[in-house]
Amino acid sequence: MSVIYILLAVSIIVAIVFFAVFVFAVKSGQYDDSYTPSVRMLFEDELVKPKKTNTK
């Protein structure tokens, strides 16, 4: 049953990793603008389109 120590250690480490990722995300400004990225994401395809028509 001493395996519980390993399990607990792993679960705590996983939790801390996620927490660190969260702190990093806040710090890098991801929570400052919650709208633009959602629109920007859709543009990647649009960028490719005119190039395609040119190579034809």
Binding site: A15, F19, F22, V26, G29, Y31, D32
Partner: peptide, 17 residues
């Protein structure tokens, strides 16, 4: 930019869960 509230919320949520 003051982000301390988001951090605090994150810490509390982490602890709570």
């Amino acid at each position: 930019i003051n982000r301390s509230l988001i951090y605090k919320l994150g810490v509390a949520g982490f602890g709570f869960g």
